[in-house]
């Protein structure tokens, strides 16, 4: 029977998180022998939280706590070898996304990323930035898969504390040292992954309004007011952030990190509100994982909101937001 290895990073003293448990449950559904490969400074708590789900292996040590390619890759490489894995699954975190393709290369294997479903040896994944969905199988082994969050139910832990795990040694050398994590912007954080609402600002905010003039300052005030009142995360269209980067007098608090859509991110939020986006990618790609979608747009026949938003308000966003901010106050 084929061995399926689930790779998980651990935080000292913390159980395996939801994304990891989802991957584990997906692995269990594949019908092979499940092995769990843990990587971190101290894997005991994580091991305990998944005890009983399969064979437990771990690469442990301070060197492996740091999120960096060389140590993550050597840990994963060692775990794949030790487990004799034919299929290797990992959650698509920044850490695994960074190193797993390289590990696949070392193992002479193949990799698929952006995997959203896994059923009976056939995966579903995205191509062309969430615009085309394919299902495929592979004969080559080992086969590495980076699984997107939300792939399925999480594994419900039933194990007892103190579950034993096999220690695997890996090369701890690296010429890199992780120094820490910083928030990219000073002042108020505009990207809030945990927010219920994604507020998308489109290029229309920077265009000439009814009076033939551009009202950037007012637009900035309204958008920031909205974020403050609603606690929303801020997304924007590509054209808007591109303008910001080229010395134009546009919204100063926007950066490419805010960009959603075809060449930006595809965030997950329960609700999304797009304003002044006409034919902008938020409606097409950036909204892929937004459940409840509304848009404020001046054009009732905007084909890009129709069919993609649940509600389209045909209204002037400046006027609506003025009032909305007062209500959310």
């Amino acid at each position: 029977m084929e061995t399926i290895l689930v790779l998980l990073h651990t935080e000292a003293g913390a159980p395996v998180g939801k994304a990891g448990l989802e991957v584990l449950e997906a692995a269990r559904g594949l019908g092979g022998d499940v092995a769990i490969g843990l990587v971190g400074a101290d894997c005991a708590a994580a091991a305990a939280s998944v005890a009983g789900a399969g064979r437990l292996l771990a690469v442990e040590g301070e060197a492996f706590a740091q999120p960096r390619y060389a140590t993550d890759a050597s840990a994963a490489e060692a775990l794949v070898k030790a487990a004799g894995a034919g299929i290797v699954l990992a959650p698509a975190t920044s850490r695994w996304a960074r190193c797993l393709p390289g590990v696949a290369q070392r193992a002479a294997g193949r990799i698929d990323t952006h995997v959203t479903g896994l059923n009976d040896g056939t995966l579903t994944r995205w191509y062309y930035r969430q615009r085309i969905e394919a299902s495929l199988r592979r004969a080559e082994r080992p086969w590495f898969l980076l699984l997107e969050a939300g792939i399925g139910p999480a594994y419900a832990a039933a194990g007892a504390a103190g579950a034993a795990y096999e220690r695997v040694t890996a090369e701890p050398g690296s010429r890199t040292e992780a120094k820490g994590v910083i928030a990219p912007q000073s002042g108020e954080q505009t990207i809030k992954p945990e927010a219920e609402l994604l507020f998308v600002a489109g290029a229309g905010w920077t265009k000439k309004q009814k009076d033939g003039a551009v009202h950037m300052d007012r637009a900035a005030e309204l958008i920031l007011g909205m974020l403050k009142g609603s606690g929303a995360s801020l997304g924007s269209s590509k054209s808007l952030v591109d303008l910001s980067g080229e010395g134009h007098a546009v919204l100063p608090f926007l950066s490419h990190l805010n960009q959603v859509g075809q060449t930006g991110s595809t965030p997950r939020h329960a609700k999304g509100l797009a304003t002044c986006c006409h034919g902008e990618e938020p409606h097409v790609v950036g909204w892929r994982f937004i459940q409840d979608r509304r848009a404020v747009n001046l054009d009732a026949n905007c084909g890009w909101a129709r069919g993609k938003a649940d509600v389209l308000y045909v209204a002037d966003a400046f006027e609506v937001m003025e009032e909305l901010n007062r209500l959310l106050g």
Partner: peptide, 30 residues
């Protein structure tokens, strides 16, 4: 790879279009 299917995702939603409503009313609903 052995592709079983390659397709555009189904994404058509039925959009309720609200027009000819005052901005204040839209704001209240939002």
């Amino acid at each position: 790879q052995q592709y079983a299917s390659v397709a555009l995702p189904k994404q058509q939603r039925s959009t309720r279009i609200v027009r000819d409503v005052a901005a204040a009313e839209v704001a209240r609903e939002l």
